[in-house]
Design a binder for these strands. Structure first.
Length: 267
DNA sequence: AAACACTTCAACCGCACGCAA
DNA sequence: ATTGCGTGCGGTTGAAGTGTT
């Protein structure tokens, strides 16, 4: 039986995108917004698979992407987040503004791995390269953190190496909650992704690993502006474990439910 | 200048998840 | 409970670029 293909492969282009295809995709998304990727190619007049369009947009065409070299600060941030999250590139990318999971993954494989090796650190386990016995068990565990996976006794090994302080940082970090949206819902031109940050969900991730965790710090009450109006909200702003520094002027996203505004900042 | 080796990164692929019917 | 759809994720590939001999 199997799944139906995501597109009719014999009628789709593959490989590098042309400038004209890029323009078509950009123009379509500008007009109708992101989402409904399956039907987008036809609507936009593109002979491409929907997945290919999504990838091209997310990894290359999105206007909020930061191009150019990674800074040292970003390097260290990636290393730190990888030590906490493993190869969860999308989670890492969610905390580094303007960078995509693909970009970070490539950068990790081509630069940071080498950088850590030259420092004598195992890139997978973040432990000194000599401690091979520990590394052999933790490498697999690091990559075994699957969505919804059941607890794995090996999984705790790596995290036991981390300080309790680092665990607290993970808990305070916002998490992307994947959500499928209907085409109608997602056809806004806001440019804001449909992903929502949910610190509690990240807590669940850690709990699934059988960890003892500390409660996150209370969130800060802030005043901020939405469409020219002053609003009160709860700040989920987070700076790798440091207390809130946003002061209500948010660079991150804002969500609102029942007049309760939640402010998020990637880091 | 040519041949080869190595590196980079955009794009592809298969699978998993959430949701609706 | 089952199935199919739409989407997102992580691993992998291969073309293009760059460096070396």
């Amino acid at each position: 039986m199997g799944r139906t293909p995501c597109c009719e492969k014999e009628h789709t282009n593959k490989g590098a995108w042309t400038k004209e295809e890029d323009e078509r995709l950009i123009n379509y998304i500008k007009a109708y917004g992101e989402g409904c990727w399956r039907s987008l190619p036809k609507a936009a007049g593109l002979l491409r698979c929907g997945k290919s369009c999504r990838l091209r947009w997310i990894n290359y065409l999105r206007p909020d992407l930061k191009r150019g070299n990674f800074t040292d600060e970003e390097d260290e941030m990636i290393i730190h987040l990888h030590s906490l999250l493993g190869n969860k590139w999308s989670l890492i990318a969610a905390r580094i503004p303007g960078r995509t999971d693909n970009e970070i993954k490539n950068y990790w494989n081509t630069h940071i791995k080498r950088k850590l090796n030259s420092r004598g650190i195992d890139p997978q386990t973040h432990t000194p390269l000599n401690s091979t016995s520990t590394a052999s068990t933790t490498t697999t565990s690091n990559n075994s953190i699957k969505k919804g996976s059941s607890s794995n006794t090996n999984s705790t090994t790596k995290f036991q190496l981390e300080s309790q302080n680092s665990l607290t940082k993970v808990m305070q970090a916002p998490q992307i909650v994947r959500g499928t949206t209907s085409c109608e819902e997602s056809n806004s031109s806001s440019g804001i992704t449909t992903e929502e940050v949910n610190p509690a969900a990240e807590l669940n991730l850690d709990l699934s690993l059988g960890l003892s965790v500390q409660p996150a710090q209370p969130h800060q009450q802030v005043t901020f502006q939405v469409s020219g109006y002053q609003k009160q909200g709860v700040c989920f702003c987070y700076s790798l474990g440091q207390s809130c520094t946003c002061g209500g002027s948010m660079a991150g996203s804002i969500t609102a439910q029942d007049n309760l505004y939640r402010l998020y900042k990637p880091y």
